[in-house]
Amino acid sequence: MISYILRRTFAAVILLLVVTAVTFAIFFLLPRLAGQTADQLAQQYIGKSPSAADIAAVKSNLGLDDPLYLQYWHFIKGIVSGATYDLGPTTTQCNAPCFGYSFKTHVEVWPQLTSRLPVTISLAAGAAVMWLVSGVAIGVISALKPGSFFDRSFMGVALAGVSLPMFFTGNLALLLFTYQWPIFGRTYVPFTENPAQWANTLFPAWCSLALLYSAIYARLTRSGMLETMNEDFIRTARAKGLRERKVVVRHGLRAALTPIITVFGMDLGLLLGGALITETVFSLHGVGEYAVQGIKDNDLPPILGVTLLAALFVVVANLLVDLLYAAADPRVRLS
């Protein structure tokens, strides 16, 4: 078990290195290959009509005239052992994990990530609870009466939920619940400050996000349940004289849920890396919004930071899913 986790962790580190290298390559290497010079790049981060000396200064400060592998190495080194920056009258120490600073605003990336993460976690966790509960419930009820009016109408709604873009559902939710009938708050309040206000503000965002996902989960649960309820062990459970409710929940759902855990873990991991669109629509200052800003400004360090964070969440979620799966299904042995 321990050795399993160690091996997985090692693999995860390699994966994260690859992910950062690929991100690095997309934003730095490809433009270079396409003929962009370090000067042109540096110019994107200075004001209007910079002198040659300005460009040179910015270039050297951002390390843009170093070879690319060295720039990448500095980034990795900063995460592991911190870095020292010369961004004012005195140098500043950026402790590990140091994700560097924004090329554009020169603001350090790591404090931004940590201050934004609670928002993203709040959004993802709340929505996850919602979609899991509603999706699974709808899926189970549909599966128990396939072809019924309930089944048909909810699967129709589910299809709509999957197909509608967040821009539509999110803006509609905003329009209805915060503009026309302002029953929900609009300014994010940390959970630690006021849990009721926190939930009240996030509710429309949760609903919109949950609509998207619960649709998928309802379908997953439905097909899983349909399959499981035909299993021999369900017949056995019934042959024991168990009440049908117990057969469905204890025997059917228990088995049908296990594969859903996998999907759920990955979805949650991805979301924790930033719900880009939802955060944008609902004006939530999470890591996704930070990534959007970074992409807009062609600002590599924030992009790398968020990418790395998202990859980390996915990797951790993946590991947790495997552990959970092993716990849920005794037939699975970790090796």
Binding site: E231, D232, T236, R254, A255, P330
Partner: peptide
């Protein structure tokens, strides 16, 4: 009742 395939007839979890 006793079923044909006890592996699939018993709940694996």
């Amino acid at each position: 009742m006793i079923f044909q395939d006890p592996l699939s007839a018993m709940h694996p979890y």
